[in-house]
Simulated assay, not measured.
Amino acid sequence: MNIQTIQDRAIALKNNRAFELFVVGVIIISALLVGAKTYAIPDAVSQMIVWLDVGITFLFLFEIIVRFIAEPNKKRFFHNGWNVFDTLVVVVSLIPIDNSDMALVGRLVRVFRVLRMVSIIPELRMLLNSLVRALPQLGYVVLLMFIIFYIYAAIGATFFAPINRELWGDITISMLTLFRVMTFEDWTDVMYETMKVYPLSWSFYLSFIFFTAFAFLNMVIGIVVNVLEDEHARERAEKDEEEGNASMNDLRDEIQELKSMITRLEQRGSSNQ
């Protein structure tokens, strides 16, 4: 069996839907085992979980090897951040550190194995990539929200501190109170308390909720949706480019075959003469 045959089989296995679902199932079982270890379980069950964990680790190692073999350009395999993450998680899981001072690290790595679901499922990977790409734009939205929080917290601390210092004693406590208002956690109790002294203070809370819970939330959703659409468009363009390259390669192969046939016919004709 030559190298090309091994690579073709690895590509076929990697693109196999059943194999992908099997890996997803193994990741889910791995997550359940991490949760099971947090309970008080008998020693026999604990030992069985340990052996299952070892088996899952080797299955992950096999899956990483298959993906590496299926990669046409081996040097570019580790240019993908998810491939690096998956490899590190699997390699660290193979190190026997459960009974050492690094046991906590081993447990944390096993928890992070759940994130491999993102690297396996393209849709989840696209969502996470879109969120990461949206972070620069979301940073300005967060900055503007902080400015709104600061202004309203200063106003609240100035007017409402004599009413309830536990909620409005200084600007930092006021910002925590405003976060409570923004998340609608018993915010009406806070409002009614200040309305006893300032009857029009309801406008303070309603305007703050409008700016933060409604306006800014819609801005965040709009940014994420736009970035997600751009990510879809980029993926479609890459897919079209790959299909175009594949078509060009097929056409080039056919032309090469035609040239070979013509050459053979010419050689046969000259030999007959």
Rank of each mutant, 00 (worst) to 15 (best):
G35D: 08
M261E: 12
F211E: 00
I155A: 10
M191I: 07
T212V: 14
E257Q: 07
G269H: 09
F68M: 07
F60I: 00
G269L: 07
E166A: 09
F60W: 07
A103R: 11
D170A: 06
D240V: 10
M117D: 00
L178T: 01
W187A: 03
I95S: 07
I221R: 01
E193N: 07
E254L: 14
I171F: 08
F214T: 01
Q4C: 09
L251W: 14
S207M: 13
Y39P: 01
A10F: 04
N164R: 01
T87A: 15
L228P: 02
V45A: 08
L88N: 00
G106P: 02
V90P: 05
F58P: 04
I64M: 13
I120V: 15
L144P: 03
F149D: 12
N226H: 10
Y192H: 14
L115H: 01
A237Y: 11
K14F: 14
Q47L: 11
V227D: 10
F210I: 06
Y198K: 04
A18C: 03
Q4P: 01
A18R: 13
L178R: 06
M219P: 02
L265W: 11
G169K: 01
G35Q: 07
L128D: 02
A213R: 15
V84S: 02
L127K: 01
I11L: 10
E242K: 12
F112E: 03
K259N: 07
A40C: 03
V224R: 02
S260P: 01
M126V: 06
T158M: 14
F149E: 08
K37F: 01
R165Y: 13
V114P: 05
E63V: 13
E231L: 00
Y152S: 09
R165E: 11
M182N: 06
Y140G: 07
I121D: 04
N272M: 09
W187L: 04
M191E: 13
N272W: 14
A12Q: 12
I28H: 08
V225W: 10
E254Y: 13
F58D: 00
I223G: 03
L115A: 12
V92T: 11
D189Q: 09
F149S: 05
N249F: 06
F149C: 04
D189N: 10
F77S: 00
T5K: 06
R125C: 01
L217H: 09
R76T: 15
D186Y: 06
A157G: 05
S100C: 10
A31T: 08
S270H: 10
R234H: 15
L115V: 02
M248C: 03
A103F: 15
T194P: 08
I69T: 03
M219L: 13
Q267Y: 09
G244N: 11
F160Q: 06
A154D: 13
E266C: 04
K14Q: 15
F58G: 04
V114C: 09
E241G: 05
